[in-house]
Design a protein around this nucleic acid. Sequence first.
RNA 1: GGAUCUGUAGCUCAGCGGCAGAGCGCUGCAUUCACAUUGCAGAUGUCAGAGGUUCAAAUCCUCUCAGAUCCACCA
Length: 746
Amino acid sequence: MDNKFTPGQVEDNIYRFWEDKDLLRPETGKTFTILMPPPNANASLHAGHGMYAVEDILIRYKRLRGYSSLWIPGTDHAGFETQYVYEKHLSKQGKSRFDFNRQTLYDNIAKFVKDNSGLIYSQFKKLGFLADWKRSVFTLDDHVLETVLETFIKMEKDGFIYKDEYIVNYCTHCGTSLSELETIHVERKDPLYYLKYGPFVLATVRPETKFGDTGVAVHPKDKRYKKWVGKEIEVEGLLGKFKIKVVADKMVDMKFGTGVVKITPAHDPNDFEAGKRHGLEVKRIINIDGRLNELTGPYEGLKVKQARIKVVEDLQKKGLIEKINENYMHAVTVCYKCGRDLEPTIIPNWFIKVKDLKKPVIEVIEKEKIKFFPKRYKKQILQWLKVMHDWPISRQIVWGIRIPVWYQVKGNENKIWLNFIDRKGEFKKGTIRQHLDNGYDLSEIKAGLQQITVPVYKQEKVKYIVSIDEANNNQDWIQETDTFDTWFSSGQWPLVTLTKDEYKTRFPTDVMGTLSDILPFWVSRMILFSLYIKKEIPFKDVYLWSKVVDSKGQKMSKSKGNVINPIDLVDKYGADAFRASLIFGTGSGSNVPLAEEKVIGMRNFANKIWNIGRFIYLNIKDQKSKIKTANKKSKIFSNLENEFNEEKKQYLKSMNSYKFSQALGLVYEFIWHRFADYYIEELKQELKTGRIEVLEELQGVYFENLKMLHPFMPFVTEAVWKVFHGENKSILVERLSFPRKRESRS
RNA sequence: GGAUCUGUAGCUCAGCGGCAGAGCGCUGCAUUCACAUUGCAGAUGUCAGAGGUUCAAAUCCUCUCAGAUCCACCA
């Protein structure tokens, strides 16, 4: 036995041993199941993934308590995220997604993902995770697709699906609409322009949307403007004079600006709602590429920002700007991914009606059929569920599960817009009618298809069918190109990870552990889908952890240059030290600071464990010839036992209530500062005089502590176990039992 | 605007009615003893502030200040 514990090779060998002995898979016993939150398939490990250690701790702990504990891993195709990464990769080669047809782009991304997957699992193994890797599920596996599509079809049948033109946050850079949750609001200073508007002056930060104005609103109680309400006013604009209706609406803040608001239903969410209330026309003047369209005359083709500059310039020339407030602070909605301003745009979208679907979700949470740890997340998720509105599930990207909707071509040639790349590689856009007139046939169009847009027509709907593959080779139908929001498929994670038999024995699963940030995105939707499809909750407990941050509490980011690569730390100090450093002394729910000094501290602890073992081991070898004296229990023995029993009691209590930091702290304190520093030192002399029962006593307490520590520091505990019991033995098949009393459910 | 959380040693944070704690850092001492990746000893605090409840408050309540996060709004 070496005088130091050196993790590197030892850890790899131990992991291989667990794999070879099939210890990653559960034994028989009462079931305990965790579904791993699927990381992006093409991701590599970052510090945040370190927190998956919490789940490994639970799995190992339950295994030691005699459960058949199973951890099922998986990976997510992460639609938008992955396509974004891939497009960045493309742009380095001077290309963009518009250079490829849909199928080719999909295949390329699939290959890209395949080439980059697998890495994270090998890194998880380095961290010692006891997951059943053979069971891994990918969110684009056939059986997942099947379930996800069936769910959509069932929802459609049950009337929970509808298509609508709705104002969505559209990122013209990323080329897709985003849900509310995927947007970020940032405070920013922008000029506020006071425009002369017929008889009024009104304030706006977006003068370029003026061309889409179809109304002007004032507050119903505003005396200043009362006489105009309901009338049309004549306004001098950049494209000449036009008439516009004045409406009264409570959304107007009398105190803001001049108390007059222009209404641009097509390009502002509030105006969209107001427009609906007053039956105003929706006049779209910005296309989804972020450029002004033909309705804007000379401004056609300009990007929004350029257009704003030009419009302001021209308005000033015409004397139509009264003043400009350059210091106006307001919140702007930006893309969470690329940070660019989002363009509120009207796009046909598929929606899920959530009103009835979320009711049972709220109920199970309120009744605590699903419990949250830390508890305050219960309030948070309930608050979020209460305001949850219909969920737009269409994404205009290819990397995902294509929505199984087919539009009828015949009779709708003028209504269906599409882009495709023809045989010669040329990009074409227009209606099907136009393409047909240009001599293309439908099979060529389908082969080179990029994206189709089928507006929702109020009177004459474009007929569609919902079907998995029925219409695939039928020339009468053309499939929707939108894909599902990633959360639509990952929300069904609990429905696609177990086998049929396991749904009888392991469902609901026991714990869902995940980053608290995705509570609304993911956790709430998993509950929703599970209750809808299975009529059962998907898991009993939800354990939420927070962001891993740097030693100063700062969020890790490339731009700050404070990103810590966990694998570096693991290579230097061992997986045990890395894992323990994330758990030791951290509060549940608060950010988890990761600092090299702390990892070193835990490395030292691992070494201490090793050397306590070494001390006992060397004495056993030395002891063989010595005589066992008459057994008289000394006071110090009973003190040790008392302290140990108390430690164990507290440990089990902490573990059962997800207080891992506390549990680890207890063992740390006991084994180092009580057991090693005090008891071993006190008993050293007796040991030297040959009292073998001293050794037995120490060994007994030490072994139990190894088991208690094993979930946190699996490698060093296993390594020591092997020294004492033989290379072929594993601490993993040992049992951790309760001292006297039975386990109390907390 | 609505809600939640946080404020404790130099740093990062536990503790959440019963003598103010840990890790790292700091000071001094110990040296071939299982371990210097060690041991022993020590310094360091108006527990953000004010008021209240209590035999007893860092802990419970109210307010104030400071910071963070979530939700909604933002012409």
